Simulated scan of single mutants.
Amino acid sequence: MNIIPTKIPDVLIIEPKVFGDSRGFFFEAFNARDFKQHTGVDAHFVQDNHSRSVKGVLRGLHYQVENTQGKLVRVVQGEIRDIAVDVRKRSPTFGQWVAVDLSADNRRQLWIPPGFAHGFAVMSESAEFLYKTTDYYNPSADRCIRWDDPELAIDWQLDAPPLLSEKDKLGVPFSKAQALP
């Protein structure tokens, strides 16, 4: 496994070691011992989620103010632009964001620790997105920041207005979002 740091040191790109030949390929998508050894993160995952979205869908920016979730995310079909925004008030990178392109072809994963808002935009005709979380979904603690907040000025690399859920249309500006300690 190869670990690639991002401009926010807590957010890590993970490239698995892929074994391939004329028959196809194999790789370990997750191994707790190796994950801890290579990242220094001792994550205990409690939930696996799987979503499918069509081109132009943008989901996010979501986070929880209680039961904060670390996420290990990857794409098994298609391509997305994945975004993590630091919402930890005491963090030196508070309000900064990282963008990483994840695809079935590059097989990259992204570790997003607790304390980050997360979102993604689908760049291919469709995409299937898998993610592990370190805590359970808590609807009463769920928050959403506007995807197009001018203060954050995230480069989603969109070529058309995104397809949004009602929840995401109601996201709050970053300046009004509930920060985490």
Rank of each mutant, 00 (worst) to 15 (best):
15 E>Q: 15
103 S>P: 10
147 W>F: 08
25 F>V: 01
120 F>W: 08
149 D>A: 03
4 I>C: 03
3 I>N: 03
99 A>C: 10
180 L>I: 15
64 Q>V: 05
71 K>D: 08
130 L>G: 08
27 F>G: 02
47 Q>F: 04
16 P>A: 05
55 K>G: 09
48 D>V: 10
32 A>I: 00
8 I>V: 14
60 G>C: 02
116 F>W: 05
154 I>C: 02
161 P>T: 13
106 N>H: 08
168 D>N: 06
167 K>P: 05
34 D>E: 15
37 Q>T: 13
120 F>C: 03
6 T>R: 03
139 P>W: 00
52 R>Q: 08
1 M>F: 02
85 V>M: 09
18 V>C: 05
173 P>T: 11
4 I>W: 03
88 R>D: 09
18 V>E: 08
60 G>P: 02
43 A>V: 11
144 C>Q: 01
153 A>F: 03
96 Q>F: 03
9 P>K: 14
57 V>H: 01
5 P>L: 04
144 C>D: 00
39 T>S: 08
16 P>D: 11
134 T>Y: 06
116 F>A: 11
110 L>H: 09
24 G>T: 04
123 M>I: 09
24 G>S: 07
61 L>G: 10
36 K>T: 13
103 S>R: 07
147 W>T: 07
175 S>Q: 11
177 A>S: 15
91 S>A: 11
32 A>G: 09
23 R>Q: 08
76 V>E: 09
135 D>L: 01
51 S>L: 01
25 F>N: 09
120 F>G: 07
93 T>N: 11
2 N>M: 04
14 I>T: 10
55 K>F: 06
83 I>D: 10
171 G>I: 01
144 C>R: 00
57 V>L: 04
31 N>G: 00
107 R>A: 02
46 V>K: 09
43 A>D: 14
179 A>L: 07
142 D>E: 15
168 D>A: 03
65 V>H: 14
52 R>W: 02
95 G>H: 05
41 V>Y: 14
176 K>I: 02
142 D>N: 13
123 M>S: 06
151 E>V: 14
177 A>P: 11
134 T>I: 09
94 F>K: 12
132 K>D: 11
40 G>I: 11
104 A>T: 08
28 E>A: 00
150 P>M: 08
130 L>Q: 13
100 V>G: 02
99 A>S: 15
21 D>L: 05
126 S>N: 09
71 K>H: 04
105 D>G: 07
30 F>Q: 12
153 A>C: 10
163 L>Y: 10
49 N>K: 04
42 D>M: 03
131 Y>H: 08
4 I>N: 07
5 P>H: 13
163 L>K: 15
63 Y>V: 07
151 E>N: 05
98 V>I: 13
17 K>N: 09
181 P>H: 09
46 V>H: 11
38 H>R: 14
44 H>S: 15
168 D>G: 07
87 V>D: 14
37 Q>W: 01
66 E>C: 02
86 D>N: 14
68 T>H: 09
151 E>A: 14
86 D>T: 12
97 W>S: 11
91 S>E: 13
91 S>R: 12
169 K>P: 00
3 I>E: 05
93 T>Q: 04
146 R>T: 01
137 Y>R: 06
139 P>M: 01
162 P>S: 10
59 R>G: 01
180 L>K: 06
136 Y>D: 13
60 G>W: 01
131 Y>P: 10
7 K>Y: 02
15 E>S: 15
87 V>P: 11
126 S>T: 08
176 K>T: 12
139 P>C: 06
70 G>F: 02
159 D>N: 15
40 G>Q: 10
113 P>D: 13
2 N>E: 14
